[in-house]
Nucleic acid binder design. Structure first.
Length: 804
DNA sequence: AGCACGCCGACT
DNA sequence: GTCGGCGTGCTC
């Protein structure tokens, strides 16, 4: 029998293994591994999407078999590499293989399911149900739109054969199609036609001219109109005269219409050259080494990446380069596109889903051999990879926060092992985990200790805000920073100010009773938004009007506390009335392209001060910026997370690198209430190595990564007691299975206890070597599947980055 | 996820 | 008795 194993799109543990289907004869020669198929599943003829995992032309199967309904692809959507990776990934991240597969594919390839209700025989159907149809004999219907008593009757009618439910699998993956034309007459014929043309037939002459010069190729009709200035009517008459044929052609949506100027490899310094050589050697010799490229800000890491990619291309291999979303700036895009031209495919969140699909198809068709993108680009369907690069490898955005909770670094390593190619992890401030592996010799350390052109690092001054508050009472702008700002403004130099935003947004508090307005769904305070004049919850999006009296005691003494970017901007404008200030935060960059526009404006010196959140810390490079101020270094230090020192150090180091990148010297101010904290002191000196050693000793004492592995298990429910009880149950199971060397924290409520109307309880396990752990976690996952239907969810996050 | 089946309480 | 509620288990 012709059988196929299909991974079905039903995310439950019981369906995590492939299901076997019969391949109908008409599909036998077309079906391939990795294709998306439509299969019937369960009773009632429901149709769902699946992925072919294996084909067996003489298989047999014990039990009932159903037939594959149809194919959704002409070619494999997933090659063998990605297919076997999905299996590994499901195990590694404690998630369903189908979820892994669907995250690997562009979102348009995830089918939409719709149902249609059809009347066969309206005899005996009640008026209420008939009313749904409104005279038509079929309607689209959603179960959630119909009340239960009507639903019951519909089910009854269906049993009696009066109604049919048709399940539809809607594939959204549609290529964009445009009209294209192609000459069908020879050059000679065209020349004859041209000589027979009336003198005033100028447009027809133009068209024949085009045919003579471009006889072999097809061209989109739109391009012929725009670039050759031939009107559509003329093309139509060309088709009627049978000079041209017209047909539909698939076209890639091109998100980068404008031409990019080419750029060429820069001369490398010795350290850079050494790095490129070591990496390229691994590419050439098919070695899956991991390199940690530790380079101070401004040391020219990007040039190392580009030249290592160049070497991979020279070896007839492809290259994958990953960057965090915020550093995928237009500057970066130009640099890569300018170097490698149209071989480059870009995958980032600024693209529409159609554009993403097109870039994905270009890669899948082998038309791109350099891929640059954010986290999910690690799944780009490249063949024959010669190098994978992860820039800013310490960035938290490389870990996906919801299932499948993969870390890009692990996936990258897997692919490098598969392709026998090097993995390059680059950062000025590597994650402790990576740096520790380099110390142990698991990774190879390459360092770039010097800035290019031997620029000096900017001077960094720390301002003790405790003192400042005593003298001036201002907790946002110190006198010294203000003086420095006024000085730069006079010299027409530019300033970058960073507001470390987390926990720093403004909230409303009653001065009589201390009542703070909280979100009714989540356990956090609401944030004041002056632009919409509302209070918003940053977690669930709940919105309400600003209260004019206290909801608790009725007092009118309400005060706005804290400082959001908007409020700081207003305050700053008062302090430096003549300065032009640009604000960059989530609110001003939500619209597509807004981010770029702000940066472009600042780059053109249309503003003097750029005020923003974390997003301004990375990757921007403005030569005229000579002053950088961090208004509140502490907020990220006070978070209940063992990585808060590391994050603060990284952030301050990155942002300090923004000052004085050209010939002008830079100055950085860090305002803090903890001036003696080692993360702040060492960021001042930009001394990563010392920070690494200090932080390692802290981690050693507290038994945290890299000395221990961690895993977080969370239960959530609308009923707080149920979530807590579940975690105590899980604790018991774990205790029985784990050795006494494993450490368990919890069960305890998460820092944000209530989120979107659900309560969260968690356990964190710290361990070194627990052979039973993975099996035990799988058991827990299986065992608590059935609870999910009741709204009690159990999640497992391996190596979590977020401990809150 | 979505459907069927089976058990239980409420109501004709 | 029977209808409608919900919990449970299965889907190639």
């Amino acid at each position: 029998m012709n059988l196929a194993k299909v991974i079905v799109d039903v995310p439950t543990m019981q369906t995590n293994d492939p299901y076997t289907y019969l391949i109908p004869d008409e599909l036998a020669d077309k079906i391939q591994n990795g294709m998306r198929v439509v299969v019937p599943f369960g009773s009632g003829g429901r149709k769902i999407q699946g992925i072919v995992a294996d084909i067996d032309h003489n298989g047999d199967f014990d039990g009932e078999l159903k037939e594959i309904d149809g194919l959704l692809d002409l070619d494999s959507a997933l090659n063998d590499e990605l297919l076997s990776m999905s299996e590994w990934m499901a195990k590694k991240t404690y998630s369903f293989q189908i979820s892994c597969i669907l995250t690997m594919l562009p979102s348009v390839m995830r089918a939409k399911y719709e149902k249609e209700l059809i009347i066969n025989d309206n005899e005996g159907i009640d008026d209420e149900v008939l009313g749904l149809f409104d005279g038509s004999d079929s309607i689209d219907f959603k179960v959630e739109d119909i009340n239960s008593s009507m639903l019951r009757r519909i089910i009854q009618y269906r049993k009696e054969g009066k109604l049919t439910v048709r399940y539809k699998v809607n594939d959204k993956a549609k290529a964009k199609k445009v009209y294209a034309v192609k000459p069908i007459i020879s050059i000679n014929e065209a020349e004859t036609e041209l000589s027979n043309l009336r003198k005033n037939s100028k447009n027809l002459a133009k068209l024949l001219d085009y045919i003579i010069n471009n006889n072999e190729t097809s061209i989109p009709q739109r391009k012929l109109v725009n670039d050759f200035n031939i009107p559509e009517a003329t093309i139509k008459s060309g088709i009627e005269k049978e000079w041209l044929t017209r047909f539909w052609q698939e076209e890639y949506r091109n998100p980068y219409e404008q031409e990019v100027k080419p750029n060429y490899p820069l001369k490398l310094n010795d350290d850079q050259q050494k790095a490129v050589n070591a990496i390229s050697e691994a590419t050439t010799n098919d070695q899956s080494d991991v390199f940690l490229l530790e380079g101070v800000t401004g040391s020219g890491k990007t040039e190392v990446y580009l030249q290592a990619i160049q070497k991979a291309l020279e070896n007839r291999k492809t290259a994958l380069m990953l960057v965090p979303e915020i550093s995928l700036t237009p500057q970066m895009v130009k640099r890569v596109k300018g170097r490698f031209g149209n071989k480059v495919a870009m995958l980032h969140s600024g693209l529409s889903s159609g554009e993403k699909y097109d870039e994905w198809r270009r890669i899948n068709n082998g038309e791109a051999d350099v891929v640059v993108g954010v986290r999910s680009a690690i799944f780009a369907p490249l063949n024959n990879i010669g190098i994978i690069i992860m820039d800013e490898e310490h960035e938290a955005s490389y870990k996906q926060d919801d299932a499948p909770r993969y870390h890009t670094r692990d996936v990258a390593k897997w692919r490098c092992d598969y392709h026998n190619c090097p993995l390059v992890l680059g950062s000025a401030t590597p994650s402790l985990e990576s740096r520790a592996r380099a110390t142990k010799g698991v990774y190879k350390l390459l360092s770039l200790p010097k800035r290019i052109n031997n620029q000096s690092l900017p001077e960094v001054r720390i301002i003790d805000m405790k003192e400042e508050i005593k003298t001036t009472g201002d907790e946002d702008f110190s006198q010294e920073l203000l003086a420095a700002m006024n000085n730069r403004l006079q010299k027409h130099e530019q300033i970058v100010l960073m507001l470390n935003r987390r926990g720093y947004s403004s909230f409303v508090m009653c001065r009589s009773c201390g009542f703070v307005l909280h979100c009714p769904n989540c356990d956090i305070s609401l944030t004041l938004h002056m632009d919409s004049k509302t209070m918003k919850c940053h977690y669930c999006g709940h919105e309400e009007s600003i209260p004019n009296k206290c909801k608790n005691c009725g007092s009118k003494k309400i005060r706005y506390y804290g400082t959001g970017t908007q409020k700081v901007q207003e305050k700053l404008q008062n302090l430096v009335p003549n300065a032009r200030i640009l604000r960059m935060d989530v609110d001003t960059t939500r619209r597509k392209g807004a981010h770029e526009k702000i940066l472009q404006k600042f780059g053109n010196h249309e503003a003097d001060i750029l005020l923003g959140t974390q997003m301004i810390a990375k990757g921007l490079d403005f030569p005229n910026v000579t002053l950088v101020g961090v208004l509140n270094a502490d907020t990220s230090l006070d978070l209940p997370d063992f990585r808060s020192s590391e994050r603060t150090f990284n952030l301050l180091t990155q942002v300090s690198g923004r000052a004085g990148r050209a010939d002008k010297e830079g100055l950085v101010y860090i305002q803090t209430f903890n001036p003696d904290h080692y993360a702040i002191r060492l960021a001042q000196k930009q001394d990563y190595e010392l920070f690494y050693r200090k932080e390692m000793s802290v981690r050693h004492q507290t038994n945290y990564p890299p000395y221990f592995f961690t895993v977080k298990i969370t239960a959530s429910d609308v009923n707080e007691a149920k979530a807590a009880a579940k975690m105590f149950e899980i604790q018991k199971i774990l205790k029985a299975k784990l050795s006494d060397k494993a450490l368990m924290l919890g069960p305890s409520p998460s820092s944000i206890l209530k989120l979107k109307n659900k309560y969260y309880y968690q356990i964190i396990i710290k361990y070194k070597n627990e052979p039973n752990l993975s099996e035990c976690l799988n058991y827990i996952l299986n065992h608590y599947q059935k609870d999910a239907q009741k709204g009690l969810y159990v999640n497992i996050d391996p190596d979590p980055l977020n401990f809150m």
